Amino acid sequence: MRVPIYEAVAHYKRNNELPYTEYFCLGFFSKLSLAEKALTESKNLIGFSDLADDSFSITTHYLNDCAHIGDDVSFEIINNKIYGVWYDYDIDDYYTCSGYIGLFSTLKYAEKAIE
């Protein structure tokens, strides 16, 4: 069973000449309606209220959705916690590249993904 997790995100380009877009995670949610509510509430906050409606989105992730974990995954969210694994590295003094590896229901699974 694949367990969906919904990430509410705000994004914008600070300057159209820059080669990147800035992303702000507004939270991870177990229900789509909660992610939608977070977007609606965030649009009224200072710093986000000037952004266009298309600067907000919801990304669907799936717990433990990585082939290296194997068949023994429980997919159960324990104590309402999930563990995110990302990587990043500096391209130069100004830019850092980062990426998403996965969301996991236990620290054990997250550490296994890092290995």
Rank of each mutant, 00 (worst) to 15 (best):
F28R: 12
S42F: 02
F28N: 15
S49G: 01
K43M: 13
I46C: 01
E36L: 08
D50H: 12
C25D: 07
I46N: 09
Y23S: 13
G47P: 07
P19E: 11
K43R: 04
S33W: 00
L26W: 02
N15A: 02
Y23V: 12
S42Y: 00
Y20E: 12
L18T: 02
G27H: 03
N16L: 08
S30Y: 03
E41M: 07
F29A: 14
K37F: 08
L39Y: 02
K43I: 04
P19G: 13
L18Y: 00
A35W: 01
L51H: 06
N44W: 00
A35H: 01
E41C: 02
P19W: 01
Y20W: 06
F29K: 11
N15V: 05
D50M: 07
E36Q: 14
L39I: 15
I46Q: 11
N16Y: 05
N15G: 05
L39H: 03
T40M: 06
E36N: 13
F29G: 15
N15W: 04
A35E: 04
S33C: 04
L51A: 04
K43H: 00
E36G: 09
S33Q: 10
A35F: 05
T21D: 07
Y20A: 12
T21G: 08
P19M: 02
L32S: 06
F24Y: 15
L18Q: 05
S33H: 01
F24E: 15
A52P: 06
K37G: 07
C25P: 04
F24Q: 15
D53H: 11
